[in-house]
Structures are given as C-alpha cells and as structure tokens.
Amino acid sequence: MDEKKQRLDEFLRSQEGFRTNAFNIIMKMLVWWKKTAGSRQFVDELLHSIFFLGNINIPPYPPEMIFPDEMLNALKKEYPQPFLLYSTHLPRRSPFSCVLDMIVLQKGQENENQIIQSLKALIKTLKPKFLVPSTICVSQKSVNAVRYYGVSMSTSGANPGKIMIAASCCNFWDDYVAGAVMTYYPKKVKNSYFDGTIKLPEDVRCEAFSLCKEERMPPCRSCGNLFGLRTTDTKEWAYGNCAEAESVSKLLKNEKNVKVQARPTSVTCTEENRQRAKNSVLKELKCVLCMVKFEKWDNHFYIPQTN
C-alpha cells in the first residue's frame, strides 16, 4: 500500500508542470495583450483551451487551481466566456496556436526569425511536456510571399491529442487539410472508402523547425502521405499532430490558386464520402470524450470573443 501511495504521489507531482505552465503562459499572454492591438481573441481562446485541457487532465486542474483568488476574479470579469464554457464546449485548436498568432501579430509575418526566437524564448521558461509544442512550420506559395505559421499540437497524452486533432478537423482547419487528416484518423491506417490526401505544388515552401534545438525538421512520413511532401523519413506521427497541418491550412485558406493546384484527386473524394469520414471522426471524438469524463458536450465548439 505504501508503494502504491508513493507511486501516486510521484505521479501527481509529475503533473504539476501543467498548472505551472498554464499560469506562466497565460500571464505572458496577458502582458502581450496589453501591448498588442487586436489580440483580445487570442487570450480569450487560449484561456478556454487551457481550461478545457486542465479539466480533462489527470488530476484535473480547474481555473481555481491555476490562479490565486484575486487574479481569478479579475480574469472572470475581463474574460467571462472561457470560465462559463470550458466544461461544455470543445476548443477548436490547442493553446499554443493562440500564442503563435499573438506573436505573428506582434512581429509581422515577414519576420520569421523573430517569431521563432520569441517562441523559443517563451518555451525555455516552461517545464517540458505540458502545453508546449515541439516544432514550428512555415509555408509560402513562393519566395518572398506571405508566410503562414503553424505549431505542433501542444498536448500531452494520447487522448487530449486525439480530441484536439478531431476538433481541428471538424471546426478549424481548411477543408482540404481536414480531409487529408480524416483519411488516416485516428489509427494511422488509410481509410478504405475516402482518400482526401493532397499534393502541394513543387514551388510551395513548407519547412519545419525544432523549437527545442537549432535544426530544421524534415517532413515525417505522415506529412509526406498527407500533403505530398518529399521525405525519406519512415516515422509516422499521429496524423494532424505535426506543425505542417496548421501551417498548410492557413496557406490554403489564404492562397486560392495554391488550393486549386493542391486539390485531392482520388475518385473516392466525394462529398458523400467526406461526410461519412467526418461522421466517423465525430463518433471517435465522442468516444474519447467519454473516456476522459467530458460528458456534457452538445456538439458546440468554442468561438472566441473579440470584444
């Protein structure tokens, strides 16, 4: 019994990184919000996403465990919606995606090195594993064109990752990216009745970098399968987990000519089959939500407040 209690105590201590990182990320975003016009929605969405993940964590970390009372009350007054809806609405994306959008807004999309260094500087102040992405991806339709950024899923554990990928597929990513990911979700086995994979044009840049080391990250096999990126890597990560998904989604949402060229070509990529694949993703999502005891979901996704 003593051994079991010791293991439990050690596990609970190991999870404290979630609370610590949640507090530090939110505090940094609040500082940036004061200095960055038009950034309110990123803080609002970040709060909801972190509160949701805290709610399904083992052990749970509700907002009351993240902030002291005085700060909690001030945040509730300034940002009421995340507190009201984190136990009923699903986030559309993981928390660090909101951090990334804040930094891109601050620095300007053309200042790639500054954006990457700002992310690295923040991550260095955080504990590893919790709420922290490992990679960033930059996509451009051509040299000197607008840059579109994405980070890998900032979740820990299989179930939170599955939830965030499914939520992004259903309510956030460009439909081509969502379709490509749904082709392999959740078991990394290609769908037998629907192939929504795409191939980015040869002149499109889609380049990932480590946020922990000073190195470029070649595409993994998953990103090669999804987006037609050339790679010799054989590692298959969970489809949709990589930074490429968010980056390519932003590219396709904004560069219509690239989207036309990248369209899926399989005869199985019909609207009927796409809907069938989406229904399958939603069914899996609901199963995972039951597993993490998130049983109040009524198919609503959180929409951030802009004012």
Rank of each mutant, 00 (worst) to 15 (best):
T231A: 11
S14N: 00
E246Y: 05
E112D: 09
C212F: 15
D69S: 14
Q305A: 09
C242E: 01
K235G: 12
D175V: 11
S142Q: 13
L72Q: 00
Q275A: 14
G108F: 00
Q81R: 15
Y193H: 11
V258L: 08
L12I: 12
Q140A: 07
N254S: 12
N24F: 08
G179D: 02
I303M: 09
Q117C: 11
T36V: 07
F67R: 07
I115S: 02
Y185Q: 04
V260I: 15
D101Y: 06
E255D: 08
G38V: 09
E236I: 10
R263E: 12
F11H: 09
F11W: 02
M164K: 03
R276G: 10
K253S: 10
F96N: 03
C223N: 04
T270C: 08
L47T: 03
A180F: 02
L282M: 14
G108P: 00
I136F: 02
T232R: 15
K76R: 14
Q305W: 06
V104K: 00
S94K: 02
A37P: 08
E255R: 04
S134T: 11
K34P: 04
A37I: 13
V43L: 04
S142C: 13
K256Q: 14
T231R: 03
N113M: 14
Q81W: 13
I163K: 02
L226D: 02
Q261F: 06
K256S: 15
A245W: 04
V292R: 07
R216N: 14
V138I: 10
I56D: 06
E45F: 09
W33K: 08
Y185E: 05
K77S: 13
P60R: 01
N299S: 12
A238W: 05
I26A: 06
L200E: 02
L30S: 01
Y148R: 01
L72I: 11
N159W: 04
K296S: 08
S192F: 12
M182P: 06
V189P: 04
L90C: 07
T306K: 11
C287R: 15
F301A: 08
A121P: 03
F83K: 04
L53E: 00
P160I: 04
